[in-house]
């Protein structure tokens, strides 16, 4: 993609992300509201904490994607690992690992396309790397 054509489509990409996000936001609100008002036996909540491989690079992108995920009712960013490129997302209605991962990655794809002048590389590691605690935690980490 040449520089001029990607620059020309930038406003369009920003607008399309904002509209898509507004729609997803309202839908998630309705879904969560309905579930709260259901009787206890018919509640469909099946929460899970899933490690989602992410494609974000800069500070801005990491901050914005975790804010957008948290802003959507029903999903919540618990933690991120920039070193391993993982977002730890708590989801309220998680049928399978793949469904939540797909949902989050679609949002991230759209956000990165809106945020970057040219989208560039959106590839992610296919498999989540195993993150285990190291013996000597770096000073700047909480745990």
């Amino acid at each position: 993609m040449s520089t001029t054509s990607s620059l020309a489509s930038w406003p369009w990409r920003i607008a399309s992300f904002l509209f898509w996000y507004a729609k997803a936001f309202v839908m998630a609100n309705v879904y969560v509201t309905l579930d709260i008002l259901r009787s206890k036996k018919r509640m469909k909540t099946s929460p899970a904490i899933i490690a989602v491989p992410a494609a974000s690079e800069s500070d801005t992108e990491w901050t914005l994607i975790s804010c957008f995920i948290t802003l959507t009712p029903g999903t919540l960013t618990l933690s991120i690992s920039r070193e391993h490129k993982i977002l730890y997302v708590h989801g309220m209605f998680v049928e399978s690992r793949e469904s939540l991962v797909g949902e989050i990655q679609e949002m991230e794809d759209r956000m990165l396309r809106a945020l970057r002048r040219s989208p560039g590389d959106l590839s992610r590691p296919l498999r989540v790397p195993d993150v285990v605690p190291v013996d000597e935690p770096p000073e700047d980490e909480v745990r």
Partner: peptide, 21 residues
């Protein structure tokens, strides 16, 4: 999470638990 507030029992997957010491 850092203060050991465990997720409810219906939580079926917890990937963050693996990272805990």
């Amino acid at each position: 999470y850092l203060n050991n507030s465990a997720p409810a029992e219906i939580t079926h997957t917890d990937d963050l638990l693996k990272t805990r010491r």
